[in-house]
Each structure stands twice: as structure tokens, then as C-alpha cells.
Amino acid sequence: MSSTEGLISHLPNDIGGKDADAINMEEHSMLPWEKRCHALLDVLATHQIVNTEEKRRGVENLGSEIIGNLTYYERWIVSAVNILFEKRILTPDQIANKTKEISERK
């Protein structure tokens, strides 16, 4: 097998059967925003705006560097945003304006 074949034969999250380290059993409590993010994605799935499979594909499409560096719910929200762009439900401009408005509150 060539050195690059593994990069194409498996999507970055398709890791079943690979070698890996010992399991780290430490658990952390969910941050408030993570719970809000989880609930938002559940609501989007209920309405089939972004369903579970689409969200997973969106995470896969982030590529291994982003997948490797973002935390779990960071990947979820970025995936959802990309799917919403793809479906033309939201535009990058809307997100840019809204995040600016939010950061100027208070």
C-alpha cells in the first residue's frame, strides 16, 4: 500500500479497527454552550433541517486537521453551519453580521 493510500481509502472519522492508545476514562461536565449546541442540533434534526447523517458528513468534510483540533461540539456547530450554507438556508454574511451584533451586546 502506498504511503498516501490510507488518506483516501478512509474518511478521517472512519477509525474503527485502527491502533490507538489506552482509553482515557476521565469525564468532564458539559459546558453550558455545549448543551445549547446539542439541543440546537437535536431541534434541527427533528425538523430535518440538518439531520444526523448530514451532521456527520459535515464533520467528515472538515478534514483531519480540523477534526483533530476542534472539540466535539465545536465540530458539530461548524458542521451545521457548513450544511446550512450548502442548503442556502443561511449565508456567510448573515453569520458574520449576527456574530458581530452578538459580540457588541451588553
Binding site: 454552550w33 445549547r36 434541527l44 425538523h47 456547530i77 453569520i95 459580540s103
Partner: peptide, 23 residues
């Protein structure tokens, strides 16, 4: 406080979709 980048992104998406009447 203040919201981090991703927390802000979540809030932005949620508010935009609520304004659009989708959720």
C-alpha cells in the same frame, strides 16, 4: 462571559433560524 467563538456561532445560528421562523 463573553461567549467564545463557537458559543457565539451557536447563538448566531439559533437566532437566525428563529428569526427565519424555522425553529
Amino acid at each position: 462571559e463573553p461567549y467564545g467563538y463557537y458559543a457565539t456561532l451557536e447563538l448566531a445560528v439559533r437566532e437566525l433560524l428563529i428569526e427565519a421562523g424555522l425553529i
